[in-house]
Each structure stands twice: as structure tokens, then as C-alpha cells.
Design a binder for these strands. Structure first.
Lengths: 332, 332
DNA sequence: CTGAAAGCGCTTACAG
DNA sequence: CTGAAAGCGCTTACAG
């Protein structure tokens, strides 16, 4: 069998199967539309030539790329990992390839990544990164579906799949009060969403309890080791807090370790709460009380929206609230 | 200003700037090759139209996609995260977009993802996933550069950037002996590379020490919580080990926590070693002795190879050994 | 430094 | 169910 040096094309397959390129194209995209014996000849021709469709050409001709851009702030030590992993897997299953971009906290970086995505004519952009006005406009003009995840902005550009961070902050405050804690200390990552939870916590706390909570802010991405500094700050307080509300499970774990190595018992001497319900939260000793967000559901809803968008039907809601649940465990 | 409903094309820009599409194309790809005043007119026309190049068309015409496929086994709790994050960032900086695929341990899944990548005509595939014979052939035929990372196979398909897992296993054994440990217990993730380190450890141990190490195997991806089961297995041993050699820092951290919560002191009653030098290893209490692999360097070398491949010059070496370093800290 | 034109490899109305 | 043909939006030798 002679192999051409170049990649085999639809034309090569068509000649071999003695049909037109149009028929081969139809077979590749939906095998059921061609006659059974034709299909068989094409199948053989594809196997013999080792044909691999050129999606660049296919995408250009059909103006759909079967590609989705996923933009996340960080990869390491991230609360998003479960969501992202589910996203990438489910997108693949749905026949969509994923372009990954890491935005950090930079709106400029996000803009560049969105331009890259649009230049590939992606079917959708799934993003949890920061947007400036220019980027919003860019996205609004584009035919790609824009999906914001992990938050529910008042006026989403396309659709949003997430939950209310304000509601989460409020519920955490109520939980802390119901458990009898009096002196909360908040360790917040320096990001918009974490700040929104913190502010809602403070507002609710002032409403239903007394005394002003103390605060620490840590850099983003919130790392395990940041807990050390936050713990040191707490120790310098005139009165030691009785519960630490952390912006992530990683921080919570770090705080538990710091507290224990300072001889404190968790939760008796100091209670600790996390956020995100990562696998580690349930596996730590003591197990960590945290807030669960269904990352896989976020992924599923986003993909369902893309699928319906591709069929031309707009998703029936622009804001999809997946909610959250406080999971009470040993640490608080 | 009237906006066409469709995306503006090179043609729209060309008309507005009163030049040919060829000139606009040249400007977009290398602004320096057009005359300064022409460049200025084109720049304005691009701004006015909001032109975003269609890389599908560009890639088809030039037969280079400026896109690289990155294939990894897992995202969550992974030792690879630093490498992947560096990879994605550095690729973006180099003007290459990344297509991400998650292979798990499945060679079939890997094959599908490689087919997807080839159908997008990626410039390179960077992979640390498992390959079957068919996939190897697929890749060999393709003009894309194939880069295997995190290992150094005897006969790489394209090039490989990684380190010798056998050498790492051997050096870990020597380290354990030099520290005076007598009864090592190995906790190994159920993956080819971890097994290679384990086997080399065992071979070396038999050579330079006495007594047969005990073993636990945990599922992949190795999770924090697996440590609990491994620790329980150890406790049932006739004689308690004096050092646990873990396949990842995550496992090591889990073991430290288990040991401590069972009242053992680390390292006095039980020493623990990790692998990978994640951020957590240096931040844990006690800090964890581990093996450092320079993930960012792996990313850099891979990208350098792609760059030189694109210039037509083959990389000068097919095997790039980035080595590893044992980092002695408090835990062992 | 610039333009006219062929070509990249597909898809898809249109016609049969 | 199938084919002929136009078209998707670029790039790039070739010529000037």
C-alpha cells in the first residue's frame, strides 16, 4: 500500500471509495445518511488511507469549530480543580474539544485569551476570570455563547452558572452563630468573590450577633502556607478568636495544622471552617466543616447550555443557581 | 459606523485601508514587512472594523495551527499541576494556544484525544499519558512534534523531557540508608512510573541494606485520603516500619496526619518521605522531605523544542534529562 | 513594498 | 441517497 507523504484528504478517501467528497463528508458527520453499502466502502477507504478529518477546514466551511474555551484563574491548589476536571471530561464526551487559558487576576490577560478563543471561532467561552468593559463588548458582539461560572452576576453577558456568594457569606454567619461561636476571625483570599462572601458575613453578623469579627487577607491563589501568617496575626489579637472562617479548604487545613502544632485542640480551643468541600476537607483529621459547591453540576449545566445553544434554542434561564450546602463536620 | 452582522474579514479591512488582502495578511503576521504609512492605515482599519483574524482559515492556508495539545492523566490533587500551569502560561507567551485533554489511565482515551489533536493539526502534542501501539503509529506518521514529559523512554517517538524514575528510586533508597533507617514501607500509586521508582528502590535496597521493605499500593490518582488505608496496613505489620516512602507529597502529608493523630511523632517514631516537592511539602508541619522535580523547566524545555521544530531545526537531543533532587527537611 | 490569483480541505444548498 | 460546484477566510509563491 502506497502512502502519500501528505495527510490523506477527503478527496483521497472519495477516490478510493468511488464516491464524491460530499458523500464522504456526509458519512463522516453522520454515517446514517448514506446507503449501507456506500458506507461500508467509505469505512474501508478511511481505514486504508488512515484518514483524519481536518477540523480546520471543516470548521471554516461550517463555521462551527466544536471547540470551547475554558478560562480559569489558576490551576495549582485551586478550588476549581474538580469543576475543571469535570468540565474537560464532559466536554470531550460531548464531542467538544477544550482550549484552556489561565487568566490569573489580570483582565488584560483574560482579554487576550478571549481574543485567542474568538480567533479560533470557539462555540462557547466558559470563564470565571475578571472582565473589563472592552472585553465585555468583544464578547457581546461575538456569536459564541459566553458562560460565566462560579458566580451569578446581576447582568450576565450570556448566561451564568454558579451561586450567590452573598448568600453563602450570610449562611456561614448564621451557622457560626447557631454553633455558639462568639469571636469569629475571617481569613479571606484577595479576590472579588471571596470578598463578597466576607462582606455578606460581616453584614449578617452585625445583624444577629455582637462584637466585630477580626480579619486577615491573604494573596491569591490562596495557598496552604498562607495559613501560617494568618494564624500568627490571630495570636497577636487582644482576645483569641474561637472560630476561623477560611476562604478555602486549603487555608482551613493549613490553619488546623498551625493550631495543632501550637498545642491547640480543634475544635475545642479553636474551630475552623473551610470553603469548597475539596476531597481533602473530608479526609483531614479532624474532618473539616466546609461549604459544598457542586462543581460537576456547574460543568453539566454549562455543557447543557452549549448543546442547546448549538441547536439554536436559547437556554431557558440566563442565571442558573446551583446553590451550596454547609457541611458540618468535626472542625467546627 | 455601520457594523456588518457577520464577523469582519480580511477583505473588509483591506477595502477600508485601500490595500489588498495579501498586504493586510502580511501586516497581521509581521507588521514590519509593510511600509509605515500602509501599516498605519491598516491598523486604523482593524480598529474600526473590530477585525479578529480567523485562525481556522489561517491555519488551513498555512498548514500551521499555532496550537499545541497538552495531555495529562488528571487535574485534581496532581503532582503535575505546577508543570501544567507553567506549560499553559509559557505556551501562551510563545503565541501558542493549548488544547487540554485528560487521559486518565486509559490508552483508548489517550488515542481519542490524540486523534482530536491531529484533526486540529496541532503543531505539537505534549503528553504524559499511556500509549498503545496503534497510537504510537498514528503519532509517528503525523508531522506534529510529539513530546513525552515526566519520563525518559528508551525509544521516544519524538522527544522526551523528564527524568529517570529508576535513578530516583535508587537514590531514595540510598538516602534512606544514609539516614539510618532500617525498615522502610513503600506506599506506591498504581501507575507505571511510580512502579518503576518502587522497583528500583527495592533492587537498590537489597543491594546495600538488609531486610525486605513492606509495600502498600494505592489507587491512582493518589489522594490524600489513601494515606489512611496505607497507615492502617502498616499498623498490622509484625514490626512497625521506621520510614514511609510515599509516591506523592499528598500521600506523605496524609501519612503525617494519620501518624500524628495516632500519637506518633514524626520523624522520631515514624519518618515520612514524599515525592514531587509540591508547595505543601515545604509548608507542612513538620516540613516534608521529598524529591524535587523542576516542573517549570520541563515546560520550558518542551516549548523550546517546539519552537526549534517550527523553525525546521530538529532539537539537538531527543532525551532531555531535567534530573531531580532529594530535599531533606524535617520529616525524614 | 504590494497585488492578483491559486489553493488549503472541508461543507452544504441545490438539483437530480 | 448522491454529485457538481460554490464558498468559507485566509496564506504565499510569483511577478512586478
Amino acid at each position: 500500500m502506497t502512502m502519500p507523504a501528505r495527510n490523506p484528504t477527503l478527496e483521497d478517501v472519495a477516490q478510493r471509495a468511488r464516491v464524491s467528497t460530499a458523500t464522504v463528508s456526509r458519512f463522516v458527520n453522520n454515517a446514517a445518511v448514506v446507503a449501507p453499502d456506500t458506507a461500508e466502502r467509505i469505512r474501508e477507504a478511511i481505514a486504508e488511507t488512515g484518514y483524519i478529518p481536518n477540523m480546520l477546514a471543516g470548521g471554516l466551511a461550517s463555521s462551527k469549530s466544536r471547540m470551547v474555551s475554558v478560562l480559569i484563574p489558576h490551576l495549582s491548589d485551586s478550588m476549581f480543580n474538580d469543576t475543571i476536571e469535570a468540565m474537560v471530561e464532559d466536554l470531550s464526551t460531548a464531542g467538544l474539544n477544550v482550549m484552556l487559558g489561565i487568566t490569573g487576576v489580570s483582565a488584560e490577560r483574560t482579554e487576550q485569551l478571549i481574543r485567542d478563543a474568538l480567533s479560533r471561532r470557539v462555540d462557547a467561552v466558559i470563564s470565571s476570570g475578571p472582565l473589563n468593559a472592552e472585553t465585555r463588548e468583544l464578547v457581546r458582539r461575538s456569536p459564541a455563547l459566553f458562560i460565566q461560572i462560579w458566580e451569578l452576576p446581576a447582568d450576565p453577558i450570556g448566561i451564568a452558572v454558579g451561586f450567590s456568594h452573598a448568600a453563602a457569606g450570610r449562611d456561614i454567619a448564621r451557622f457560626a452563630v447557631s454553633r455558639g461561636y462568639r469571636r469569629p476571625h475571617l481569613v479571606t483570599a484577595d479576590g472579588a468573590r471571596a470578598m463578597e462572601r466576607r462582606d455578606a458575613f460581616l453584614a449578617e453578623w452585625r445583624e444577629i450577633a455582637s462584637g466585630e469579627p477580626s480579619l486577615s487577607t491573604v494573596d491569591i491563589p490562596s495557598r496552604f502556607g498562607h495559613a501560617r501568617r494568618a494564624f500568627a496575626e490571630m495570636r497577636r489579637l487582644p482576645q483569641m478568636p474561637d472560630v476561623v472562617i477560611c476562604g478555602s479548604d486549603y487555608l482551613a487545613m493549613g490553619l488546623v495544622i498551625e493550631a495543632q502544632s501550637a498545642g491547640l485542640r480543634v475544635p475545642d480551643d479553636l474551630a475552623v471552617m473551610g470553603f469548597g468541600n475539596s476531597a481533602i476537607a473530608g479526609e483531614m483529621r479532624p474532618t473539616i466543616t466546609t461549604v459544598d459547591v457542586d462543581g460537576r453540576r456547574i460543568a453539566r449545566e454549562a455543557i447543557a447550555a452549549i448543546t442547546s445553544h448549538q441547536k439554536g434554542t436559547l437556554p431557558d434561564q440566563r442565571l442558573i443557581d446551583v446553590g451550596f450546602r454547609i457541611i458540618a463536620r468535626e472542625s467546627a
